[in-house]
Structure formats: structure tokens, C-alpha cells
Design a protein around this nucleic acid. Structure first.
Lengths: 212, 212
DNA sequence: TTAGATACATACACGTATGTTTGTAAACAC
DNA sequence: GTGTTTACAAACATACGTGTATGTATCTAA
């Protein structure tokens, strides 16, 4: 096959990632073949091996296309907590839920990550990256919650690390269960879901012990 | 190899399921080989094919060993809501979290289901079963929440179906994130986590629209 | 006591995914 | 205009998992 220009090559790379999304979603990451992906993109495995080292490289590149923008959003939130951290956190959580509900690429990639990927020793590098990313996310959430606590939006006895864990769990859980269910409009209920959780934080009972 | 007695054969079946837990956990369900499982149990694939049709059959049998007892627990809860449904639900949720934290078999199987299994078209039968089980679980939770609502434990404007979704999501999310994290004692914090969520339900804002 | 069923082990055939190597036509540098 | 590099396609070698067929030693029932 003939050589393409730089822009054309970059475009086929994107097409390969699009194809990877579809194939991973349809067959699961493990059962997806590099030939499946190439074929779906109208290419051959030669193209795949030219742009990526192996299947793992495709997977991480595909994840980065959706996770990097979301991470940037959280970074901005931490840089400037604003006058109403809890309210802002509510709106941000709802915004993420709406993104999952409405942006098809986000929907598909979240479904792949939550339902169609086996994290195991073989992909230990990816697991380590993911664990680091999740830990950073929790630290950032805890920071924002502490800011809210200083403003009196959350009782002083609440352990912000544990609350950050609960918040993160709730968000992931809602995304996961809604993706599995799909019986109601998540965007419509996103605000209520987040507000209800924060109402719980505001009326939380005193903790039994310190989490470390 | 010589024929064993019925009891001995039943025991090797259990050993194969134990081995499947270990191998699925270590390599992921897709990458796990029937030879891996047989070898781990000190047997050969002949034994595997004698007791099970294929890998999917092993997987479902392994899941049933932990999910059936838990389902029975929820059934009992629905059969008799008792005088304090919300409090009972709090204790039940905490009990499930403690089970995940302390019972090693439950821990391992939940890790397999949440992190090391790819639900895709190929295992559509398993997916359909799982969806039905989840739907039933949500219906049961909604029933109990309605009982609590009639007793005034939850505001009348709360949509119990949506609340059941949120509760289920929260539980799954907490299990998932704790399994990934493991940095604190989940059993110690289980009560607080559940009580905080129910405090949110009790102080939930009015809904924006009806979920159907 | 013996015929058949049971509980596995062993061996084979088949498909299939992977990594690599080679081929090649167009783009680009000069 | 020629040489080199790019961006793939095509072909190949290797390995591996699955299902099945077959072998076999023991248990069990009549």
C-alpha cells in the first residue's frame, strides 16, 4: 500500500482507535483480535503494528482519549475550590453523569473499562497506572471536601478521606449500574442523585473510628 | 486413573471450583485455561470435562457458591420487613460489606466478577441471567424502601425505584472501590458508610421528575 | 463374579492469535 | 530525478487453547 501523508496517517490512527472501541465493546478486550480491529477499520494488522506496539498500547491510547479531558476538569476544580465547594462538587458529579449518559464515546469507553476488561497480572502496568490515577482522584476529592468542611458545609466530625472514598464509590457505582440498566434518563436524575448523597454527608453520624 | 467413590468425586468437583477461583483471580477469566485449572487442582483436563461442559459452566458454578447464600439472605429480608425496615437495611448492607471484607471466598469471587470478567456477546446467557438477578434485587430493595416510606422513615416525595437504584449503586461501588484500594478496614467503617447514605435519603430534596 | 458404568488420564486434530519478516508504492528530502 | 523513508499489506512461522476421541482402572450392582 502506498505511503500516506502525515495527516492521513494520524487519521488512520484515530480510525484504528475508533475501531478498537467498537471491537472491544462487542467482544471484550481479551477476545478482541488485532485482526478484528484492523478489519473493522478497513485495514490490516500491518497498520495496527505500525501505529501501536501491541493490544495493550491500543487500549491505553483509547482510554486516554476520554480520561485525559475528565482529569483536566477535576484538576481545574481543585486549583480553585471557589466559594461553594460542595455545590460545585454536586454540579461536577452531575456533569460527569450527564457525560456518561449523552456522549457516546464516553459511554462506550466506560462500558469497556467497567464490564469488558480483565485487570490481571498480565496487564500489571495498566493496573498500576489505574491505581495511581484513582488514588490521585481520591486525594483531590478529599482536598475539596476539606475545603467544604472549613466553610461549615460538612460537619467537623466527618472524615474527609472516608467521605471521598464514599463519594467516589457512589459515582462509579451509579455509572456502572446505569450502564447495566439503561431504564431511565440518567441526565434528568443526575442532580437529584448527587444532592441526595451530599445531604447524607451533611447529616452524617459521628464516625466510629479513624480511617488511615 | 481409577474410579473414585461418589463422595470423592464430589470433593474433586469442589477442588476444581477452588482451583478455578485461584486461576480466574490470577489470570482473568478469558486468559485462564482449562489446563491451568486442572493443573492447579492437581488433575488433568479430563477431570474438568467430566464435571463441567466448558469454562462457562465452571464460572457459573463458582459464582453460585457465593451468590446463592446472599440471595437467600435478601429473600428473608423481603419476606419480613420488620418494624424498622431502614435500620434493618442498614445492618444488612453493612453485613454484606463485612462479608466482602472478611470472608476470603466472597472477597475473591467478587474481585473476579468485578475486575476479571468480560461480559460480552459471547457469554450472553450469563449476562441475561445476571441482568435478571440484578433487576430482581432492585425490585426487592424498592419494596423494602416503600415499606420504610409508609412508616415515615423516608420522605413521601422520594422515588423508591430511584432510591433503590442509588442504594444498589452505592453498595456495588463501595465493594468495588474497596477491593481496588484495601487501605482501611471496611468492616469497621461499614456501619458509618451505610448510615450516611440513609441520612441522605431521609434528607433528600424533592425529585425533578418521575423515573419510569 | 462379572458386566457395565464411572471417573478420570492421555493423545490428537483443528482453528486461531501473535509477532515478525518481507514486499511495495507513494511521499519527501536533496 | 534519484534515493530514502514512510505507511501500510501480505505472507510466514510459531505457539497455544479447545473439543473430542480413546484408553483404563476402579467401583457398583445384579
Amino acid at each position: 500500500m502506498a505511503r500516506r501523508t502525515k495527516e492521513q496517517a494520524a487519521e488512520t490512527r484515530e480510525q484504528l482507535l475508533d475501531a478498537a472501541e467498537r471491537v472491544f465493546h462487542a467482544k471484550g478486550v481479551s477476545r478482541a483480535t488485532l485482526d478484528d480491529i484492523a478489519r473493522d477499520a478497513g485495514l490490516t494488522r500491518g497498520a495496527v503494528y505500525w501505529h501501536f506496539d501491541n493490544k495493550t498500547a491500543i487500549f491505553t491510547a483509547m482510554c486516554d482519549r476520554v480520561s485525559l479531558p475528565m482529569q483536566a476538569m477535576l484538576d481545574a476544580q481543585v486549583a480553585d475550590p471557589g466559594p461553594d465547594p460542595l455545590g460545585q462538587l454536586t454540579r461536577d458529579g452531575a456533569r460527569i453523569l450527564c457525560l456518561v449518559a449523552n456522549d457516546s464515546r464516553t459511554t462506550r469507553v466506560f462500558e469497556i473499562i467497567l464490564f469488558k476488561t480483565e485487570l490481571c497480572d498480565v496487564v500489571a502496568e495498566v493496573m498500576a497506572e489505574e491505581a495511581e490515577r484513582a488514588a490521585r482522584c481520591r486525594r483531590q476529592l478529599s482536598t475539596v471536601l476539606q475545603a467544604a468542611q472549613r466553610l461549615g458545609q460538612i460537619p467537623a466530625h466527618v472524615n474527609c478521606d472516608l467521605a471521598a472514598f464514599a463519594l467516589n464509590s457512589y459515582l462509579i457505582g451509579c455509572i456502572r449500574e446505569w450502564l447495566e440498566l439503561r431504564e431511565f434518563n440518567l441526565a434528568d436524575q443526575a442532580e437529584w442523585l448527587m444532592q441526595t448523597f451530599y445531604a447524607g454527608l451533611q447529616h452524617a453520624p459521628p464516625p466510629p473510628a479513624k480511617v488511615e
